[in-house]
Structure formats: C-alpha cells, structure tokens
Amino acid sequence: MKFEKTQRTPLVELSPESCLIKGECYPENIAEWSGPVLESLKQTMVEADSEFKVDIELYYFNSSSAKFLFDFFEFLEGSSEEGKKIRINWRYRAEDDTMQEAGEDFQEDITACEFNLVIVEYPSEEQG
C-alpha cells in the first residue's frame, strides 16, 4: 500500500514487514488524510510479520499533524503490547533541532516499541 507524497503530505509506504513515512506533513485537513493512512496501517498490522520496522523521516510537520503522529505511535504501542516486535527509527538531519526535539518527545512516551533516534546525512537539496 502506498500513499504518494504531495506538497503538503508525506509519502507513506506499507508492507507486511515495514512502514515508511517520508516528507512533509501539514495537510489541509489532517483527519481526511490520516484516516485512510491509519486504517491501512491497522489492516497491514493484522497480516504483518512478527517483526515490523517503521521508518519516519519528516522534514516538517505542523501542530495538527502532531496529533496524527501521537495516534500513530499509540497504535504501534498497542500492537507491540499484543506481541509484535516493532522497531521505530525516527530519522532527522543532524542540524534539525526541531525534528530532534520532536523525536525525543515521542520517545519519552514509547515503552513497548523500540524507538531509535537516527541522524541522516544528506546534501541539502535532497529532502522529503
């Protein structure tokens, strides 16, 4: 399952072993966009492998989208408590203190999943 990236929403790729979210997230209507994404994630998780990897690499997200990420992690925590082994990589660029702080804040609340803060190196043009 794939949700193509748009100017205001990230790429989302779901498979039985992984989930990738990459780009920017400040949609016109967060519920309209996140509803189908969370629904797909739930369906994917039913058939997912016992080990599941999540890569999130956001360049920017607005405050409405923070709620989506919160719900997203909450669902993953639930799945993890039910027995899935979930590894989340929160990827951000070294100089991006905003995304680093955001990752640290989510990390504090995540106990069942493995949550890693991962620094990525890019030339500055290659983003999202």
Binding site: I30, S63, S64, A66, K67, F70, D105, E108, D109
Partner: peptide, 29 residues
Amino acid sequence: RQMYKQRLRDGPPNDSEGAGLGFIEMARR
C-alpha cells in the same frame, strides 16, 4: 515543551478546530 506534550496527550480543547497546539508550537519557534 512540557505544555506541548501535555496538550498532545490530553487532546484538543472543546473550542479548537485544530489540535489546540498551534500557539504553543508558535511560542516554541
């Protein structure tokens, strides 16, 4: 930062159309 996290956990106030986080986000930036 703490207020932002708390608001995120508590959910939006009743009269908010967003997540109620906007002004906290702005104040942080």
